[in-house]
Write a protein that binds this DNA or RNA. Structure first.
Length: 595
RNA sequence: GGGGUGGUAGUUAAGUUGGUUAUAACGCUGCCCUGUCACGGCAGAGGCCGCGGGUUCGAGUCCCGUCCACCCCGCCA
């Protein structure tokens, strides 16, 4: 028997290869045994090729033993299939390979799930991830992800950006998420932190004069997971010197346009910009899904003198807001359906949901004793509705009203199929508040991060510590939103140390604490810092959109479960006491000692 | 930390008001089959009904607890 050397992959061959002697290697996808004749679909990441084993060939005996997922090498001749037997669904369906020789390179146990079954529970897929990753869908997703990073690099490399790596073993970053810590053996009792983002490092690179930097950076945050959140994830991190907001947006607009044209075949056009306040008031959140309308309507002022006390109280109270939306042609919503919507708004914190139905010749509402038919029609009309519509209204503190109505809007958008999935909808969201008040700690915290520059018109307020104006301060921060996902966020950074000092005063971070936590960075600001700014993309979320999936796990080769557990390697796991001793952390109770 | 949904052959699911031997499809095993590509036919094996406790003459089914997976809130600058 002669040597096997792969000549083609399983997606290569077509009619013009008719007659060629080839050698293919791959996995047995399916075997169809006709007694005297056996068909095997051989699979690799390039495709499927039908192998036919004829009774006059010795290889038929080997083919009898083949089972799903066996790895085999076959030699044979490419044969054009007769017209009636062409399989138009297959890339290689014009041909088949008549096997003269077949060698089992590796047998396989019966897989714990069928690779062609798209309904397998995720727990099982994650435990046997290496099998899950054989499925064409996952292979396609990871290929798209590869193309994404590849195109990002291609684009940025032509724009004078340098790709620079920054450390994974680093120092705890300020005011952020919970850190993952790594104990130091050489410095007992001291810890590295895995970076939540390369934020300070990329700013230092600007101070070092690298001008334009990017990195496809792994980031770590020890917080609870979500469908679009993993404890370790990837950012496209980039930073530019001597720029203001417009330059950063312009560069990213071109990057998005390039990526979407190449990878999605879409012309994204000019990405619109809305302010944070506008986003909140029109959509209830700062990452609006603009693939459908159904904008929120504010009726706070209209309700100030209402006889419905719930409304008038909220309308007249400091920080109260009454918002609603019109659900068109939905006046036939059943009571049960509306009750379910109650649960939706409760997610946002609302205590109740008021609805006004304008059916033909009939007005109905749970609050109809406070509003006569004419005024209900008036409210619906002023909200942009008409006969046949239903209006949903929430009255609460502004934040709760926004969050509740945002949840309701998204729910209705999905349920009523209002979302146009044929085209992705981007928007910039800008003018974020600089500060957010933390009522628990009774202090201001940075909404973005403490290196974010304030807009010029508010600089005086900051430098003079005018705390009463803090709620009005707006940052030079911007998010890029696509289909309701925040896919990128960034800001222009503080490059003057007196401004940075004012920021720390505002955040009640003492000089001593600031020095201890990131003194190196503050000192660097004194050595000639260019104005700079940048952005960080959630690369996984972009990949999700490009792969048309709503689970981040589908675009990560080896993801973790909702409990941050790796079901395949069974990690995290206890370690030997000896390892802990060496790291000087035996004062912590070892899990191996746990009862 | 809180809420929701789910956990039944290898897989995906059905399982009524608690009541004989817990079903089906796919997969798996064996036999048959020379043109299939969701191959077909015949036969067969395969179940601590997530785990622990309780109610009951009797629990997959009811109750309590617990674990796991997914989704949401909190959290994620």
């Amino acid at each position: 028997m002669s040597e096997y050397k792969r000549s083609h992959n399983c997606g290569d061959l077509n009619a013009k290869d008719d007659g060629q002697e080839v050698c293919l290697m791959g996995w047995v996808d399916t075997r169809r045994d006709h007694g005297g004749l056996i068909f095997v679909d051989l699979r690799d990441r390039y495709g499927l090729t039908q192998i036919v084993f004829n009774p006059n060939q010795d290889s038929l005996h080997v083919a009898k033993d083949l089972r799903s997922e066996y790895v085999v090498a076959i030699k044979g001749q490419v044969r054009k299939r007769p017209d009636a037997m062409v399989n138009k669904k297959m890339q290689t369906g014009e041909i088949e390979v008549e096997a003269s020789e077949c060698k089992i390179l590796s047998a396989a146990k019966t897989p714990p799930f069928q690779l062609d079954d798209d309904n397998v529970t995720e727990a099982l897929r994650l435990k046997y991830r290496y099998l899950d990753l054989r499925r064409p869908k996952m292979q396609k997703n990871l290929q798209v992800r590869h193309l994404l990073t590849n195109h990002i690099r291609q684009f940025l490399n032509t724009q004078d950006f340098l790709e620079i790596e920054t450390p994974i073993l680093y120092k705890s970053t300020p005011e952020g998420a919970r850190d993952y810590l790594v104990p130091s053996r050489v410095h007992p009792g001291s810890f590295y932190a895995l970076p939540q983002s390369p934020q300070t490092l990329k700013q230092l690179l600007m101070i070092s004069g690298y001008d334009k930097y990017y990195q496809i950076a792994r980031c770590f945050r020890d917080e609870d997971l979500r469908a679009e959140r993993q404890p370790e994830f990837t950012q496209l991190d980039l930073e530019m010197s001597f720029v203001d907001i417009e330059e950063v947006k312009e560069l990213n607009q071109r990057l998005v346009s390039y990526l979407w044209k190449e990878l999605r075949g879409q012309d994204v056009g000019t990405i619109p910009t809305i302010t944070y306040d506008e986003a909140m008031n029109r959509y209830g959140n700062d990452k609006p899904d603009l693939r459908f309308g159904m904008e929120l309507q504010d009726i706070t002022d209209m309700m100030k003198s209402s006889s419905f006390k719930v409304f008038s109280d909220v309308a007249n109270r400091e920080g109260g807001a009454i918002k609603g939306l019109i659900c068109p042609n939905a006046s036939d919503f059943s009571r049960g359906k509306i009750d379910k919507l109650m649960n939706v708004v409760k997610k946002g914190g609302a205590k109740g949901l008021v609805w006004l139905k304008w059916e033909k010749d009939k007005i109905s509402s749970p609050v109809s004793k406070f509003f006569d038919d004419a005024s209900i029609k008036d409210i619906i009309t002023k909200m942009g509705g008409k006969e046949g519509d239903i209006a949903f209204i929430v009255a609460d503190d502004w934040g709760i009203t926004c969050a509740s109505m945002a949840a309701l809007r998204l729910h209705l958008g999905e349920e009523l199929n209002l979302i146009d999935t044929s085209k992705d909808a981007f928007t910039w969201v800008t003018d974020f508040p600089l500060f957010d008040y933390d009522p628990n700690e009774k202090r201001w915290i940075a909404m973005h991060h403490p290196f974010t520059a304030v807009k010029e018109e508010f600089l005086e307020d900051m430098l003079n510590d005018r705390e009463e104006n803090f709620p009005n301060l707006r940052a030079k921060a911007y998010d890029l939103v696509c289909n309701g996902y925040e896919i990128a966020g960034g800001s222009i950074r503080i490059h003057q140390n007196e401004v940075q000092a004012a920021m720390f005063r505002a955040l009640r971070i003492s000089e001593e604490e600031a020095k201890q936590r990131f003194g190196f960075f503050l000192e660097a600001l004194h050595y000639g810092t260019p104005p700079h700014g940048g952005i960080a993309w959630g690369l996984d979320r972009v990949a999700m959109i490009l792969c048309d999936t709503d689970a981040i796990r589908d675009v990560i080769a080896f993801p973790k479960t909702a409990k941050a557990y790796d079901a395949m390697s069974e990690s995290p796991a206890p370690v030997d006491r000896a390892q802990l001793l060496e790291l000087g952390i035996t004062t912590l109770k070892s899990q191996t000692n746990k009862t």
